[in-house]
Amino acid sequence: MRFRASVSEVSTFVQIVKSVSRLSQKCIMRFGEEKMHLICHDATEGGVQVWSQVKVTTLFTAYRIESNQNNEIHLSTSISDLLSVLNSASAMQGKGEVVVKLAKRPVGEQGHLKPVLIWEIGGDTKRGRPPRLIHEHHIKVLKPNEIELLREPLCPEPDIHILLPPLATVRTVTEHLAKLSPHLTISANMGGKLTFKAGQNEAKGVEVETEWGGLKVPSVVNSSGDGSQQQQPERSEDPSHFFSTQVSVKSLLRFLHAHSIMGSTVACICEGHSLIMYLYIGEHEEHGGVLTFFIPAVDGDQDD
């Protein structure tokens, strides 16, 4: 099993990891020949999961991988540890390359060899550059039986896909609506309208609603997140008809902390079942990767 690469886009790597840092303490990095996947599959509070994929060329150069599992390597790691290493690399950016490689190091009194990611950050002593920094990042290599347990959530075909306004704007609106209710009803139609509705007291009919109009209803990656394109499902309904699902405000805000990634976001509504968010690295037509967030629907009568 071998892995070695130069990290060419440290800042993008930092943004990707930051986007999931509020969702889970651990993640799985699956390195393949063409893509790196970042997975948070253990349902957090609110049940949010992340299944992302990033093109190798978006983050790495001089990329080499070899394993007896179809040239794939699955590593489980602490998100905070990974972010700490990447922040260190970001601080040294411009002072030399960042190289990451898989190795083994003796651990404990018995000196048993354990897998680690070795991060070599910075330049050398030539021309006055500071010496290279070395970080040993402890990880776990998943066994085949553990890999078999990794399954994306099963969701019905989305009823509608819609391109969201900037996430920073959506986050501000959501934070205001969070003061009224623990739940939000999110609705969209083929006419390009999107609404967020919160009820302060549904029994008394007090509700607050925010609406956006003129949004694009695009072709998007399919629900498996493999990067292929599909058209919106053909509907006979009036384009003004809204499809809706209700989600936890806390769960939605956890996703909205991903707004540091510069790119477009497509929301997919599976009516009454879930909200799927595709957060693209770049524009979705020519993206360098996509982070897929699965946010389950909630019953309006349940406590959050």
Rank of each mutant, 00 (worst) to 15 (best):
K104G: 05
E136W: 12
G123N: 05
L154E: 14
S84K: 10
A103D: 11
V98E: 14
R132W: 03
K114A: 08
A62F: 01
I121Y: 03
E136S: 09
Y63N: 10
M92D: 01
P153I: 09
E136Y: 11
G108S: 04
A91G: 12
K143P: 02
K95M: 15
S90R: 10
L102P: 04
L102N: 08
N145D: 13
I139D: 05
V98F: 06
V56W: 09
G122F: 00
H138R: 08
H112R: 13
R127D: 13
L83F: 01
M92T: 00
T58D: 14
L117F: 03
V56M: 13
P106W: 02
L150I: 13
N70H: 09
Q93M: 11
G94I: 11
G128A: 05
I139K: 00
K126Y: 03
G108P: 02
I139V: 12
Q93E: 15
E72Y: 03
I121K: 05
I118P: 04
R132M: 05
S78P: 09
K140P: 05
C155Q: 14
E97R: 15
V56G: 12
P106T: 00
P144M: 09
S84I: 04
Q69A: 12
Q93F: 03
H138G: 09
K126M: 05
L117N: 00
L154C: 15
I147D: 06
I79F: 02
L102C: 04
A103I: 07
G96F: 01
K114G: 00
W119I: 02
H135V: 07
Q93L: 11
G123M: 00
L142F: 09
T125K: 06
R132Q: 11
S90H: 00
K143Q: 13
R132T: 06
R129W: 07
P153W: 05
E148K: 04
H137K: 05
I79P: 07
R129Y: 01
K143C: 07
R127N: 14
P106Y: 04
D81N: 12
Q110K: 01
N145R: 12
T125D: 00
E136A: 09
L113D: 06
L59P: 15
I121A: 03
D124C: 00
K101L: 13
G123A: 03
I139P: 05
E72T: 07
G123K: 02
G108I: 01
R127W: 09
S90I: 01
K114Q: 10
N71E: 08
K95A: 13
P131K: 11
T57G: 15
K95W: 10
L149K: 14
F60C: 13
R127F: 09
T57Y: 15
V100N: 05
H137S: 11
L150P: 03
L149F: 08
H135K: 10
I147E: 07
S80G: 03
T57F: 13
D81Y: 07
T77K: 03
I73R: 04
G94M: 01
R151L: 14
L150T: 04
F60R: 12
T61R: 12
H74F: 13
V116T: 13
Q110N: 03
P130T: 04
E152I: 15
E97L: 15
R132S: 09
Q110L: 00
V98I: 11
K114S: 07
K126D: 10
P115G: 00
S76H: 12
L150V: 10
